[in-house]
Nucleic acid binder design. Structure first.
Lengths: 141, 141
DNA sequence: CTACATAATGCAATATTGTTGCATTTACAA
DNA sequence: TTGTAAATGCAACAATATTGCATTATGTAG
């Protein structure tokens, strides 16, 4: 598990403890062929006879994301917020990680570029969703 | 409420009934300055002394999405799936709406283009997430 | 090696999100 | 005005997510 060793080094280097639950979650993520939800992690562990509280799993995943040892994927079926209107199936949002402000913007050429890229990979795109996380103008102190 | 009238026309044209609950939800979406979750819709209505079952709200929002009168937005805080690894803060997925297959792909120039666009709008991007929904090669029969 | 301080976990409780089946009501057309 | 098909409400439940606090375990200092 070389990947896990690397993650463990990062944990230690940043002053976080290397606990059994953290190692268990890292192992699940490393072995998983797909992105997994916190709930998936719990079920996979249960199948091995191991048990972790789901709260613990959430906290570990949050930490791993914070340390860039994991990342969040927003697949379909996710949190749903609806707004009225249709902008040609291309929805691009900027979300400020500081103040939570968000702003939608459209860029037609970018959409076409994306479509073309996917097309070359054999994929026919019907809807785009993009989110940029970062700092808005106000929060770039 | 010109927007609502338009939506109502679409409903009628497609043979869907124009019911009180549907008009209530459309009104909430139209007045909302932000994307709202189904739960948000319910709370907003409650504040006005109106009440709709949450199941009804889910069904209406699904219908509006189906008719392209609304769309789903995947903001941060959504359904979380984590995988180990860090690919420079740019995660682009193609998800097949038919078979659910997904595939991650990277494109550096696209990322830079996106960063630049956001930059011109005063936004400093740290992480990208993109999802393309459509049909994979296998499902384009 | 032991014991301490504190970080991390487990647990309890609760809130939010989402789905299904069926009884009842409502919209709209005849 | 009335019939009927569509839509809603209700009940039940499953899954997802967050908070506060008691308990446990890690890493360190002795």
């Amino acid at each position: 598990m070389p990947e896990i060793q690397g993650a463990i080094r990062v944990l230690r280097a940043k002053g976080y403890k290397v606990t059994q639950p953290r190692k268990q979650v890292l192992k699940v993520l490393t072995q998983a062929q797909k992105p997994v939800s916190p709930y998936d992690v719990q079920k996979i562990l249960q199948q091995r006879g191991e048990h972790l509280d789901h709260v613990t799993i959430y906290r570990i995943l949050d930490l791993l994301c914070l340390l860039n040892l994991a990342h969040k994927v927003l697949l379909s079926g996710g949190f749903v917020k609806c707004a009225l209107g249709d902008e040609e199936g291309c929805h691009r949002f900027m979300v400020c990680r500081q103040c939570g402000a968000f702003q939608e913007f459209a860029d037609k050429s970018l959409c076409e570029e994306e479509n073309e890229l996917a097309w070359h990979l054999g994929f026919r795109t019907e809807q785009h969703f993009s989110e940029f996380f970062g700092l808005c103008a106000k929060c770039q102190g």
